[in-house]
Amino acid sequence: MFEARSRLGRIGLQLLVTLLVIPFLLPLVAMVQGSLVGAGFENYLAVLRVGSIGTFFLSSAIISAGVILLVYAVTMLTAFGFAKFRIRRKELYFWLLLACLTLPEVVLLAPLFATFVSTGLYDTYWAVILPLAALQIPFAVLLVRTFIEGIPDELFEAARVDGASSWRGFIHLVIPLTRPIAAAVLIFTLIGAWNNYLLPLVFLQDPAKQTITLLPSYFIGQFSHDQTKVLASAVITAIPVVVAYLCLQRLFERGLAAGAIK
Results as ranks from 00 to 15, higher is better:
residue 225 H to R: 05
residue 112 L to K: 05
residue 261 I to H: 12
residue 211 T to P: 07
residue 36 L to T: 09
residue 212 I to Y: 12
residue 31 M to G: 07
residue 157 E to F: 01
residue 209 K to A: 04
residue 144 V to T: 07
residue 128 V to E: 10
residue 214 L to Y: 05
residue 173 L to H: 06
residue 243 V to G: 05
residue 111 P to T: 07
residue 2 F to S: 14
residue 73 A to L: 15
residue 196 N to V: 00
residue 106 V to G: 00
residue 92 L to V: 15
residue 55 T to G: 13
residue 172 H to G: 10
residue 117 V to L: 11
residue 60 S to K: 04
residue 107 V to I: 11
residue 54 G to T: 06
residue 47 V to R: 00
residue 224 S to F: 11
residue 242 V to W: 05
residue 81 G to W: 08
residue 41 F to Q: 07
residue 170 F to P: 11
residue 96 L to R: 01
residue 245 Y to A: 08
residue 160 R to K: 13
residue 188 F to R: 02
residue 84 K to Y: 01
residue 167 W to N: 05
residue 99 A to C: 01
residue 150 G to Y: 00
residue 200 P to R: 00
residue 55 T to N: 06
residue 143 L to M: 13
residue 99 A to E: 04
residue 108 L to N: 04
residue 185 V to F: 02
residue 65 A to Q: 09
residue 87 I to G: 03
residue 215 L to C: 09
residue 260 A to D: 04
residue 51 G to L: 03
residue 87 I to D: 10
residue 255 G to V: 04
residue 136 Q to G: 06
residue 156 F to M: 03
residue 204 L to K: 03
residue 88 R to E: 12
residue 224 S to E: 12
residue 70 L to T: 13
residue 87 I to F: 13
residue 183 A to C: 05
residue 48 L to D: 14
residue 93 Y to K: 09
residue 154 E to D: 09
residue 71 V to H: 13
residue 175 I to R: 11
residue 174 V to S: 14
residue 230 V to A: 10
residue 5 R to W: 00
residue 194 W to M: 04
residue 221 G to K: 09
residue 236 I to F: 14
residue 10 R to F: 07
residue 28 L to M: 13
